[in-house]
Design a protein around this nucleic acid. Structure first.
Length: 111
RNA sequence: CAGGCCGGCCGGGUGAUCGCGUCCCGCUGCGGCGGGAUGAGGAAAGUCCGCACUCCACAGGGCACGACGCCGGGGAAAGCCCGGGGCGGGGAAACCUGCCGGACAGGGCCACAGAAACAAACCGCCGCCCAGCGGGCGGUAAGGGUGAAAAGGUGGUGUAAGAGACCACCGGCGCGGGCAGUAAUGUCCGCGGCCAGGCAACCCCCGUCGGGAGCAAGGCCAAGCAGGGACGAACCGCGCUGCGGCGCGGGGGAGGCGGCCCGUCUCCCUGGAGUUCCGGGUAGGCUGCCCAGAUAGAUGAUCACCCAGGCGGGAUUUCCCGCUGGACAGAAUGCGGCUUACAGGCCGACCUGAGGC
RNA sequence: GCGGGCGUCGCCAAGUGGUAAGGCAUCAGCCUUCCAAGCUGACAUUCGCGGGUUCGAAUCCCGUCGCCCGCU
């Protein structure tokens, strides 16, 4: 995932968490917010509840890898956050990808 | 060969497809594109000790507080490393492991039990007296009993009974000396008094060291806003004066000084330094910051084969087949240590047992 | 990255060198026709865990694990 497509600003992330819509799945939670004008920006968060540093990094990397193929198909002007849950560590990669796809579809973000 | 023990090292490899950070080169329609190089650990971890570095004006003295404490060497330093010494614990052995200034400087504590816990007579023993199958006074720490702990052990002399009271040997302590060792210390000889607890991971005393905070330290830039209330030292002397003030000295106030005092520095003394309360604004960038160097955090995803290892089956001396399968863990200023976690494997030294030559 | 604090029964907790209070909950019994209340009794061989100091440790020292709070 290129830096261009990343949601990096602390304020932006706080805004999505505050004003965005959230959708839950056993493996991952999706938060998204429509922001006029911009391109797609996304980030992955794994909190301490997922595990220690190794587990958190691993969860983030796998989720990022699962999300990347869908980026070109997401409606522009969307900020989104993927929040890793603990079972995401044990899940297979195809299950992770399926979970991300399901969430994006339910949110109506795919074009 | 089996088991153990010590030290050191490694801690998957190759390839394919899709991707990421940083740097360099080239092209560019400035959005990028192409090529190349490079990209986690022995503990990166816990944050337990140090140091560099930065700010607190300088980092000064004393108190307080904290850490450390056998000897020698290494080290910038350290609750660090190496070697050695003493006392203790474990093991058959190789070896592993705990502790280490002072208890006549002083204070405190030692529950229960026990007569008594640092000063002592409950039973017993002995003497005398009352007098009688008991009691009183005195002597006695050898015996009994209590306890984690109660005036060194054995034998003798001695005595009313006893006791280092005295003697011999042994153990311990102190002093003096010889020898070995850089030293801690060891060992031998002589002398002494016979020697009255323990705990300083309780306070404490002695010695050594430590000023405080920490890269969210700190520096620069940009953006933004709105101020208000309370407290607050009566200054004094001298000199200059263009009469508005200014300078010097003393006194006082506030702060640096994050525990206190001294000392010291800065600012201020009535259009006022500053302290404090309420309210308002900001939550960005660059730097510090690295031959990995991010700034919500790059080294990943998927797969194949191989290599260790484990299990099962068939041959049974090395062979074949199938399944399984690689730990602990992810840099955020850098470095030196400590501690803790860790599948499996390699190398070397040593100990014990069994067998062969 | 850094600074500080707390772990005692299922829950809330006292105890800071001498053998672990108390309340709620739970269980058993009494009372009641039954329930509740009340009364009586039971309930911590590991004080988060592992070592050490001490005659003796929840308490003192060292290490370790978990949780909480604060700092841009």
């Amino acid at each position: 995932m290129k830096r261009e497509f990343r949601l990096t600003r602390s304020v932006d992330i706080k805004r999505v968490r505050r004003e965005g819509t959230s959708l839950a799945h056993p493996l991952v939670v999706l938060l998204h917010l429509t922001v006029p004008g911009g391109q797609v920006r996304a980030t992955v968060i794994a909190t301490r509840s997922v595990g220690k540093a190794v587990q958190r990094n691993r969860a983030r990397r796998r989720l990022r890898a699962a999300l990347t193929p869908y980026l070109p198909r997401i409606r522009p002007g969307t900020d989104l956050i993927l929040l890793a849950r603990k079972p995401a560590l044990e899940a297979s990669f195809s299950d992770l990808q399926m979970a991300v796809y399901t969430l994006l579809t339910r949110a109506g973000l795919l074009i």
